[in-house]
Simulated assay, not measured.
Amino acid sequence: MKSGFGVLVAMRHLVLLAFSFVIAFPFLWMLTSALKTNEEIWKFPPVLWPDNPMWGNFVEAWNAAPFGHYLFNSVFVASAIVLIQIVNSSMMAYALTHMKFIFRNSLMAVILITYMLPAAATYLPGYIILSELQLLDTYAGLIVSNSVSVFAIFLIRQAFMQLPKELVEAAKIDGASHWRILWGILIPLSKSTFVVMSILSFISQYNNYFWPMLITKNPDLSLISVGLRSFFIEGGAYGLKWPLIMASSSFAILPLIVLFICAQKWIMGGVNNAFGVNKG
């Protein structure tokens, strides 16, 4: 029995290892392509590792465009959006789970319905509103226009619903305010879910492309996704400098890889808590 169980465990690990390799291969190919020449990239049969790695491609790509500024813009805007979403999503989730008011369930239904709307359907009214507020082509416009997330409200609401309601009732009896209950009890007990929400929201905003490009024209406000496109089409090259494009893509994705590696245990724990999955 033990040997059979060991074989099953080994097979499971092999399958997971194979899936992991398939998922990681595009990133590995991108990194190795940054060390090749154009001829080696299009060589057939393809070669994973070049004969003479051209490490200078990374330096050349970094100096060819202000990628440091693009990365700063993306990290700054995404971080600001995440902080605002933590505040407003937690307050909305608290109201929907621990406050009694008329049409509470109807409000949640409306919130979920708005999540079904195509993002493109909101671009025109969003653009008009930002224009009236004179927030086009500004950091404030980039941040405010993305400061509410329906997914974040839903995820935090699910986490709050998993917590014992007796904790909130006891705190109310002791005279704790709603603000104290939220920030002193619920949020600390749901911190893994907040980490998950923050990471997912950060990645989404970090990779956001069409909306930032639509509401900003100033190159100094370009996010990394827009900066990569500008570098891709610079001088009419349209992808002729593939090693440099692969190197610049590595700059863009490296912060996200580091973020995921550092927070992967929080991601799994937060998803389990939010949806009531027991490890046992």
Rank of each mutant, 00 (worst) to 15 (best):
M54E: 07
L17P: 14
N73K: 01
L142D: 14
L31H: 00
L244M: 09
I156A: 00
A247I: 14
E234F: 04
I203D: 07
F275S: 04
M213D: 14
A171D: 11
S79Q: 11
L8S: 12
S230P: 11
F210V: 07
L186R: 11
L200Y: 12
Q85V: 11
C262H: 04
M92F: 06
F275P: 02
F101D: 12
F44K: 04
I203P: 12
Y206H: 06
L71R: 00
P212T: 03
G175L: 01
D174M: 08
L8H: 13
I187N: 15
I233S: 12
G4T: 03
N208F: 00
N273F: 15
I215M: 08
E132Q: 13
A170R: 05
N52C: 03
V258H: 00
K265R: 06
Q205I: 02
L31Q: 01
N38S: 12
A237P: 00
L155C: 06
F151R: 09
S248K: 05
L189I: 00
S190P: 14
I203V: 01
S190Q: 08
L200K: 01
P45K: 08
I86V: 10
A252V: 02
G276E: 03
I102C: 13
A140W: 13
H98F: 13
N63A: 10
L182V: 14
G236K: 03
L223V: 07
A159G: 07
D174L: 10
S250D: 05
I224H: 06
N38F: 03
T122G: 10
F251N: 09
I257F: 13
S106I: 07
